[in-house]
Simulated assay, not measured.
Amino acid sequence: MTQQETRIFSEQIVTPDGAVRGEVVLRGDRIHAVEPRESAPAGALDWGRDLLIPGLVDIHTDNFEKHYQPRPGALWDAYGAALAHDGQCAAAGITTVFDSLSLHGRKDGLDRKESLGPMIAAMDAAQDDGVLRADHLLHLRCEVTNPELLALLEPHADNPRLKLLSVMDHTPGQRQTANTERFHERMVAAGRSQDEIEEMLARRHAGRDPSVAYSNRRSVVGFAREYGLPLAAHDDESLEHVEEAHDDGCVIAEFPVTLAAAKAARGYGMLVAMGGPNFVRGGSHSGNLSAREAAEADVLDIIASDYVPLSILRSAFLLIDDMGWAPERAIATVAANPARSVGLVDRGEIAPGQRADLVRVFRGAGGWPAPVEVWRQGARVA
């Protein structure tokens, strides 16, 4: 059967070897060729000076939770939340997204234990119904201090969307919240009273059993090896943390909180991932390592959206505009690098044989990159 062919011309196609003027030839759901041309031939879609870049790959986003609980205490229908989250990701140019769900506690009143099953089931159903615009994969964030961790993780072992695990410890005074004064300031800004903050700290410290954390971490590492899943280390702070992550087989250093940890992780061959909101805002909201500082030190490999889907595209172009990175290097932080870090070799680049996941980018006021067309597997989805 002859595959449908689509040709798209752009004066700025960002390929792995640099930006070129020409057209991308699509056949079915794949890129067939990238051909140099001076102008759009008859029958081709003409994107003019708008850039043509690969679809973005986001390995960490909490955005799904925000749609499931749009306001504290107000839960939304899980299927509707899946659709809303999916639409926001696609509109941001994200064609592959790892929905990152935490196996621990509460956040802004959301009981993550109770919400986990309904959220996963809703996204599974939406995928089965064929209504999703982006390709949704699953990243389970394993809080090693949680005594119920394995009971939450094991039921999802055979979910085909499960493609990434991360190990983390969010006890105040540890890793991300090593700076307890900054943690206190954040809680005050969120409207917490002094009594509430003290109760929260006491509860979290009381519930931290070092033996449980150690046992859980060993179990998650074994689980990842058994199922062939890549493993990320979340919020490493010290050289000891990074050494442990390396020994455990972690391939991603996710949001390291110090530059020393980021450099050590890179030295061990791990890819360093930082948050897009951190980069765009110019610093971490937790007072930890700045994504821009990581870029300046040449230890930034991956940008994840964390909690703002549009932030990764903006970050990539800030790398180009503010830091002088070549377009192909900057775009790789939000496409090829995250894809390869989790073993996805069929997407993330404008190159023959890759999935036809494309984004048309218009540079708007102030240089903002606006994704005005998004294609996944050869079909326009946004």
Rank of each mutant, 00 (worst) to 15 (best):
A232N: 10
N216H: 08
T15H: 11
D158W: 09
R203T: 08
P277F: 04
A356D: 09
R133G: 05
V359F: 00
G366H: 13
E23F: 13
M168P: 03
V97M: 05
L149A: 01
G367H: 12
H170V: 07
S238E: 05
G283S: 12
T2K: 13
Y68R: 01
T96D: 01
L140W: 03
N63R: 06
P16E: 11
V14Y: 14
V25A: 11
L153T: 01
A365K: 14
M323C: 12
P54K: 01
F317I: 10
R106H: 15
V57G: 00
G87Y: 05
H60A: 03
D108Y: 08
A262T: 05
G249T: 12
A42F: 03
A78R: 00
A190Y: 06
L132E: 02
A40Y: 05
V381W: 00
A370F: 12
L165A: 07
L110T: 04
R347V: 10
L271P: 03
G22N: 09
A157E: 12
A157Q: 13
A304V: 15
R329C: 05
K163D: 02
M274H: 09
P160W: 10
G191E: 12
G117R: 15
V131Y: 07
I13E: 07
F98S: 00
A40S: 15
T145C: 05
V272M: 01
A91R: 09
A125I: 02
P155M: 04
A326K: 14
L310G: 11
G353M: 07
D236L: 02
A265C: 08
T61L: 02
L300V: 07
V242M: 11
L319Y: 06
P327G: 13
L110V: 06
A125K: 15
R30Y: 11
N216A: 08
R340W: 09
D129P: 04
T2G: 01
A261G: 03
A126H: 03
S215P: 00
E35F: 00
E35D: 10
T61C: 09
I302Y: 02
A213N: 06
L164E: 07
D235W: 02
Q3E: 15
H234F: 06
P160M: 08
L137Y: 08
D209L: 02
R292Q: 14
V381C: 01
V220W: 05
E114H: 07
V131E: 13
P338H: 08
L140H: 04
R192S: 13
R27M: 12
V374T: 11
A190N: 13
E5N: 07
H139D: 03
P155D: 06
